[in-house]
Amino acid sequence: MNQALQIRSALASEQLPVPCQAWFQTLITQQPPQQRTLPALVAAAKARLLASDLTASGLFDTTSPPPVFPREVVSSSPASVQETCLAHDVVAQVVDLENVSQSRWQQVQALEAIERGEQKRGREIIRVLAGGDAGNDGEAGDETDTGNGNADGRPVARASATGGTSDANATHRLVLQDAAGQTLFALELTRIYRIGIGRLRIGEKLLLKKGTVVARGTLLLEPASVRFLGGQVEPLNKAWVEGRLARLRSEAQAAGQRE
Score class of each variant (00 low, 15 high):
Ser103Phe: 09
Thr218Gly: 04
Asn136Thr: 14
Glu124Pro: 05
Gln107Tyr: 03
Ser75Met: 02
Ile125Cys: 03
Leu206Val: 12
Gly196Cys: 00
Glu188Met: 06
Val18Thr: 14
Val74Leu: 08
Met1Gly: 11
Ala134Met: 14
Ala151Val: 13
Ala79Ile: 09
Ala12Asn: 13
Arg8Asp: 06
Asp152Phe: 03
Tyr193Cys: 03
Pro39Cys: 07
Thr146Tyr: 10
Tyr193Val: 11
Pro17Asn: 10
Thr26Val: 12
Pro70Glu: 05
Ala246Ile: 10
Thr37Cys: 00
Asp145Ala: 11
Gln119Arg: 14
Ser166Tyr: 03
Leu86Tyr: 07
Lys238His: 13
Ala43Lys: 12
Leu206Cys: 05
Leu245Ile: 00
Arg173His: 00
Glu139Gln: 08
Glu115Val: 11
Ile197Ala: 05
Val241Gln: 15
Trp240Lys: 03
Ala252Asp: 06
Arg158His: 13
Gln6Ile: 09
Ala246Val: 13
Val74Asp: 01
Ile28Phe: 06
Val91Cys: 01
Ala4Ser: 13
Gly217Lys: 06
Asp96Pro: 09
Gln21Met: 14
Gln31Leu: 15
Phe60Asp: 05
Gln102Thr: 04
Asn169Leu: 14
Ala159Asp: 09
Arg227Val: 07
Asp89Lys: 01
Val95Asn: 08
Ala252Glu: 04
Ala87Asn: 10
Ile125Lys: 12
Thr55Ser: 06
Leu54Asp: 07
Asp167Ile: 08
Leu59Phe: 06
Gln6Met: 11
Leu189His: 03
Gly217Thr: 12
Ser103Asp: 08
Gln31Met: 15
Leu5Gly: 14
Arg121Cys: 00
Thr165Glu: 12
Lys46Ile: 04
Ala179Met: 03
Gly58Val: 03
